[in-house]
Amino acid sequence: MRHICSLIAMVSQLEEQSVRFDFYQEIRRRKPERQILKHDVRLPRHYFDYLIHSGVLEVETDAPYQPGKTMPASIGMNIRSLGGNVLFDMCFAPQTYKLWQNTDASIEDLSLPADIFEEYVYRLGAISRFRYLGRIDDPVTATKLGENDMIEFKRDFLYSKTGIIKSIVAFANSNNGNLFLGITDEGTVCGIDHEIEQYGDPDKYILAITQYIQDKTSPFVTPFPKISLKKIDGKTVVAIFVEASSDLICGLDKNNEKYVVIRTNNRSVIVKDPHQIGEIYVKRKLGSEISRRLGLL
């Protein structure tokens, strides 16, 4: 099957274990159009060869290039922003389960039209996830937007622990999300300074939140939520950014029994239907688009 789009590597240096090249995208319609994606990329040769064997990469070099034997590889598209164009990182690892935890190599800050990006995801059998998409660092901006599918407020940590875990698990299983502690459901900033005083200092307080998330989720949430403290009018707010995970994440109740949560509109909903849980698992492992194309959803 002839594809209208291909990735092009103009090789500048061949080494025993790696290849150095300029990275292009070429669209062949009436007149071929080529655009630079990234200058001076270095990639381990077995991943470079994997792209060739996958049929997405063509090589331009002075002497004919002979790829080596196919070696196991998994490719992930780490999406930074969406729109007419998709900004993303292309990540490589030897096995799928190591993709986000132990990325061997990456090509960062690539940009492609959304339809072309989807085509490469499909042809590579790649897993896609969102990186920082929808991240809101400013609590004031969050209060103006109000609670939605990517924003949730909790008054505190000590008395909202169960709700915090539900929200984190829901964001990890559904989409990136922002959880703020020290803001009421109505969007009023009340702060958590009194809780910091109980722990003695901010570092111990952050450590307590981190430890609680680790203890009450399974498997280990990867990537782990980013936790930071923000000041608004002299009051301290905790900002927790949760990235969608490639694994199905479960919360643990008081008896350490597992439960699954997803995000629906502005609510975190516990899921009990085994079929629905299976769909979530498939999406986490393969990505929504690949799952649909394979007829699994």
Rank of each mutant, 00 (worst) to 15 (best):
Y50G: 11
T184K: 11
K254P: 01
S111V: 09
L296D: 06
V140I: 11
A170C: 04
P225N: 07
V19Q: 08
E195N: 02
R34M: 10
K226E: 15
E58S: 14
V238R: 04
D185Q: 12
L14E: 06
R155L: 12
N256Y: 15
I192V: 12
A93P: 05
I75A: 02
F171D: 06
N78T: 04
Q276S: 10
G177E: 03
R34F: 05
D138M: 09
I79R: 05
P94D: 10
I116C: 10
Y24Q: 01
Y281T: 07
I168W: 02
K258H: 05
T184S: 12
F21N: 07
I79C: 02
S6D: 15
G68M: 07
L43W: 01
R135W: 14
K204L: 15
S18P: 03
A142C: 13
S81M: 06
R80E: 11
E195G: 02
T96L: 14
S245Q: 13
H39T: 14
R135G: 15
E257N: 08
S288Y: 01
V169Q: 06
E16P: 02
L124D: 00
L14G: 03
H39L: 13
R131P: 04
E15I: 04
V189A: 04
I27D: 01
Y159W: 10
T61C: 15
A93W: 01
V221K: 13
W100C: 00
V221I: 14
M10S: 13
L57Q: 06
D89I: 09
T264S: 13
T236W: 05
A114Y: 08
I183N: 05
R28E: 10
Y281M: 13
I183C: 07
D201Q: 04
I116F: 05
K230A: 12
R80T: 05
D233L: 11
S106T: 08
L145R: 11
G76E: 01
N265Q: 14
I209P: 04
N85D: 12
Q35H: 15
H53K: 08
V41N: 10
C250F: 10
V121I: 03
E16D: 08
L37N: 07
D201C: 07
G134E: 06
L145V: 10
S111Q: 13
D156W: 03
F130Y: 12
E60D: 12
D115C: 06
H39V: 11
I164M: 13
Q13V: 11
D115A: 02
Q66M: 13
E26N: 00
M10Q: 09
E279T: 14
H275Y: 09
L158I: 05
F48T: 02
S246W: 02
L133T: 15
E279W: 01
D40I: 10
R267A: 13
L110C: 14
S218P: 00
F48Q: 09
S106K: 13
I75L: 04
L248Y: 11
P225R: 00
P32W: 07
E58P: 04
P44K: 03
I116S: 04
I52P: 03
L14H: 11
K235V: 07
M90H: 07
M150H: 15
M90W: 06
N148Q: 06
Q35A: 11
D253N: 11
L286S: 01
I227Q: 00
C190W: 02
F130R: 14
P94E: 10
P32K: 08
K204R: 11
G76P: 02
